[in-house]
Design a protein around this nucleic acid. Structure first.
Length: 863
RNA sequence: GCCGAUGUGGCGGAAUUGGUAGACGCGUCGGUCUCAAAAACCGAUAGUGAAAGCUGUGCCGGUUCGAUUCCGGCCAUCGGCACCA
């Protein structure tokens, strides 16, 4: 017999045990829940506080993976918990269904992207249902359907009208493999975020969203997002990257032109020994003298051919060519050469810098390479004679004392920055400036499967947005998907020609589509009003449900999706809020970024062949086991390791739950049996008269309720929730109801409450088995609509506590004492402990520290 | 290079206004039941030691009666940004 063979027989026998049968249970309740619409979020207003629980919606790639299972289970448990706690819960689901994979599949298999997407959605929807999500499917949204993207287009037009959408020619990121442009956020290490292929710069006319308009607001908003992980806040902060400095203007010698530069170090302006323009800077062509033209053009040409990777690989080395023209430093009136170098980026600041080799590492390297002068103007604070300080082998980049700086000599860097800016303002060649690294969001894509940009080009009127009555601009189907370098939409015979919305004369449509991140930047608003055919949403409903109370998804969207969504919400809030209806600016109040699902310590991947198929797990062990397991071992933020043997352990635990609840139900008398499975079962129990094991069961029940409620509310510590559930079930299964009933008359009712609570407590995590047990216990309505139990504060205290006795902080003995004992009593009892006597011999107690309910510590020293 | 997070048994992890380190689970070992196996149940499981005890939360130091927790310095791993002027 091979080892594999042994393994499979073993597994089979595990599954045959007992009478917990997940498959029929899960099948049955899926149907019942659906027929009774128990997860439908009605729209009528009620007194309950609202709670919006949202998962990052999936791309319909074909089938569910374990990352989905983890994401959606987390959100679902939160939604179910909040529902039982009495919140009016919105828990929707949908499909982020535009995007390149559908288009690639279309080319490969000669099938319409829409058909490919639809069949994927159908399959994945079935899988999601199996997982037992308490989702209101009436609110499902699919971004590739006209009834959704019509409103994406509407938002585009709204932004356009506010001047937040514009078209311009600019050097943009071009992915050779995807044959389309990419947003700045989609270029990772000089490579395409989707397929890792190299990205090059191209000068193209493209549509942008003016996210930079909101740079400061988006930055400030981060301070109020207390429910977001710090690292996401930090990543967004770094991405926006604000720097404070000055914009200074340098006249060009012999030309009627000025070079504007941005600097964070105006205090070093007396050390400027040359200037640098980015190769793409417009002044380059304008200023270059005839004798330098060939050399300069060659350099510009070679810089443009470099990929982002090449630029990065060059690392510390710098190259450039002199333009052959000079600028004048307005502070020193010195003539300084103007150079062109690709270490200066055209799309940051003004695309030009004043070079201070003495106090900037990059300028220093460049100056050394081309033998340009280095003028020291800042000396360290510690220098006794600042004027004699000289930068030699490396730039001095810290702040310090100014030297060789005219009237500013002797000032500190901080003071000099102010003074120099003030001087520049007075003389009219500069001002204070705040600069952001964040760039405008490039949203056009030269691809087919996306939302058409709703714009037409009219010979008379120019660029005109499609009127609202002209929406949706429907994506044509008569296209050649294999068209390269421009949008396949342009191959459509029916799409291109139209009439201008303004003057009705012939016009042509924009053929680019939108970045799919535009679709996903507002979908959480559409859920709120998913069936609205008159508008994207009604502001009143948005004001009622937004912001999302809990958003759950992967860390990979820390910048992309989460920054774009914030921008769109800020923009919509600004344009749609009225006196009466105020829309929030921040879309997501709390954010939970879950870790990855690994398999035996490795990333799951097709190439490794270690992918665990959720459906196989559902079929073998049931969705409850999958849900229970994926919450059990690691906290949500950490990576989770999927281990086969551990899954089995979870399955066995559910068998134990089934048996335990069944056994205890059998012990209960009839009237109690029929009462315990009602929504708000809270029997009259006289706690003070409880004794023995019955008293202990009551305490344990309430401690478990309190512990689990706290763990979920605080940080979604589901791993400790699971641990507490296990301990409680173990306790409950050891409780001998028949024997205890003879000792304590209240045993039956305490047991009934424990059983009722146990079913409720497992309900969010394992909804199927909970529902089945609830029915078994006589429940007539769903346990998922029952009330979450509330802990009795009196029962949370232990009757007796363990007191540790320490000598100089080391544990030497311990004793048990009734809870609530006085400090003095604890100290004297501790003093008499046998085991500590040897440590007290020949010693004198200099201090006694008593922590009530915890410990007594004697500080001793030799007599 | 800059910024940040993390570091606890064989493994995942638990414990924080500083108070018994290792909850709960996985794995392993032993036992009960059985003709036998599976399941179930019970017990053991940081290292070292016969035991008392000693050592132990990445490393070094500090504060404290007492430090996984606070402070300083270092190391390692992971993540983000990266010629941002």
């Amino acid at each position: 017999m091979t080892p594999q063979h042994q393994d499979s027989t073993r597994k089979k026998s595990v599954l045959q045990l007992d009478n917990y049968q997940p498959q029929p249970i899960e099948k049955k309740w899926l149907t019942v829940w659906q027929e009774n619409n128990i997860y439908q979020t009605n729209t009528e207003t009620n007194d309950k506080p609202k709670y919006y629980a949202l998962s990052m919606f999936p791309y319909p790639s074909g089938k569910l993976h374990m990352g989905h299972v983890r994401n959606y289970t987390l959100t679902d448990v939160i939604a179910r918990f909040k529902r039982m706690q009495g919140f009016h819960v919105l828990h929707p689901m949908g499909w982020d269904s535009f995007g390149l994979p559908a288009e690639n599949a279309a080319i490969q298999n000669n099938i319409q992207p829409a058909a490919w997407t639809d069949s994927n959605i159908a399959h994945m929807k079935k899988q999601l249902a199996q997982l037992g999500l308490s989702v209101d499917w009436d609110r499902e949204v699919t971004t590739c359907k006209p009834d959704y993207y019509q409103w994406t287009q509407w938002i585009f037009i709204a932004l356009y009208k506010k001047g937040l959408a514009y078209k311009k020619e600019a050097p943009v990121n071009w992915c050779k493999n995807c044959e389309t442009v990419l947003a700045n956020e989609q270029v990772i290490d000089g490579k395409c975020w989707r397929d890792d292929s190299l990205v090059v710069k191209k000068n193209l006319s493209q549509w942008f969203f003016k996210i930079t308009e909101y740079a400061q607001e988006l930055l400030d908003g981060l301070d109020h997002l207390h429910g977001w992980p710090d690292r996401v806040l930090l990543m967004q902060k770094n991405w926006i990257n604000r720097s404070i400095g000055a914009e200074l203007s340098f006249p060009v010698d012999g030309h009627n032109a000025r070079i504007e530069v941005f600097t964070t170090r105006p205090d070093t302006v007396f050390g400027v020994t040359y200037m640098v323009l980015a190769p793409e800077h417009p002044l380059v062509k304008q200023l270059v003298p005839a004798e330098n033209q060939v050399e300069v053009e060659q350099y510009v040409q070679s810089a443009s051919l470099k990929t982002e990777m090449d630029r990065l690989a060059a690392d510390k080395q710098k190259s450039g060519v002199p333009l052959g023209v000079f600028a004048v430093n307005p502070f020193t009136h010195q003539k300084i050469p103007i150079w062109i170098a690709d270490y200066v980026l055209v799309d940051y600041g003004t695309g030009a810098v004043m070079a201070v080799p003495a106090h900037d590492e990059r300028d220093f390297v460049f100056a050394k390479t081309y033998d340009l002068p280095v003028q020291t103007v800042i000396a360290p604070d510690t220098e006794n004679n600042p004027d004699s300080f000289r930068v030699e082998n490396q730039a001095y980049t810290d702040a310090g004392i100014l030297c060789h700086s005219g009237q500013f000599t002797g000032m500190t860097s901080t003071d000099a920055k102010q003074a120099i800016i003030a001087f520049a303002v007075a003389e009219g060649f500069g001002h204070k400036k705040i600069q952001y690294r964040l760039k405008d969001w490039l949203i056009s894509r030269q691809r087919y499967w996306g939302t058409p940009i709703p714009v037409v080009y009219c010979e008379k009127c120019g660029t005109v947005p499609v009127s609202e009555s002209g929406l949706p601009v429907v994506l044509p189907t008569d296209v050649d998907f294999s068209l390269k370098g421009q949008s396949p939409v342009s191959s459509s015979k029916t799409f291109l020609n139209t009439a201008c919305p303004t003057c009705k004369s012939p016009a042509v449509r924009e053929t680019d589509t939108m970045d799919t991140f535009v679709d996903s930047a507002w979908y959480y608003l559409r859920y709120i009003d998913a069936q609205n055919t008159q508008a994207a949403f009604t502001p009143e409903q948005v004001a009622r449900w937004m912001p999302v109370d809990q958003y759950v998804g992967g860390i990979e969207h820390a910048i992309l999706h989460l920054l774009y969504s914030r921008f769109i919400m800020y923009a919509l809030s600004d344009s749609l809020s009225t006196e009466k209806t105020k829309l929030p600016k921040e879309p997501f109040k709390n954010l939970l970024t879950q870790g990855m699902v690994l398999k035996d310590g490795h990333k799951m991947s097709k190439s490794k062949g270690n992918i665990v198929d959720p459906t196989a797990i559902f079929n073998e062990f049931g969705a409850d086991t999958a849900r229970f397991f994926i919450l059990s071992d690691s906290p949500p933020k950490a990576d989770f390791d999927w281990k086969e043997s551990a899954v089995e352990g979870c399955y066995k635990f559910l068998c134990k739950v089934w048996r335990c609840i069944g056994d205890q139900l059998a012990v209960l008398d009839d009237p109690l049996q029929s009462q315990l499975a009602t929504a708000a079962f809270t029997p009259e129990i006289s706690y003070s008269s409880l004794t023995g094991n019955t008293r202990l069961l009551y305490q344990t029940t309430h401690q478990t309720i309190a512990g689990i409620t706290t763990d979920i509310a605080a940080e979604y510590q589901f791993n400790t929730v699971i641990s507490k559930l296990r301990q409680f079930i173990t306790h409950l299964s050891k409780f001998n109801g028949a024997a205890e009933a003879e000792k304590d008359p209240q045993c039956q009712v305490v047991l009934a409450y424990a059983v009722s609570s146990a079913i409720k407590l497992i309900a969010p995590v394992t909804p199927f088995i909970a529902e089945a047990l609830w029915e078994k216990a006589g429940g007539k309505t769903s346990v998922h609509l029952a009330q979450w139990p509330v802990a009795d504060p009196e029962a949370l205290q232990q009757d007796t506590v363990n007191i540790v006795v320490q000598i100089n902080g080391k544990v030497r003995d311990q004793f048990s004492v009734e809870s609530g004992a006085e400090k003095a009593a604890l100290a004297s009892k501790a003093q008499s402990c046998q085991k500590i006597q040897p440590y007290l011999a020949g010693m004198v107690v200099v201090r006694t520290i008593v922590v009530p309910e915890k410990l007594v510590n004697f500080v001793v020293k030799p007599e």
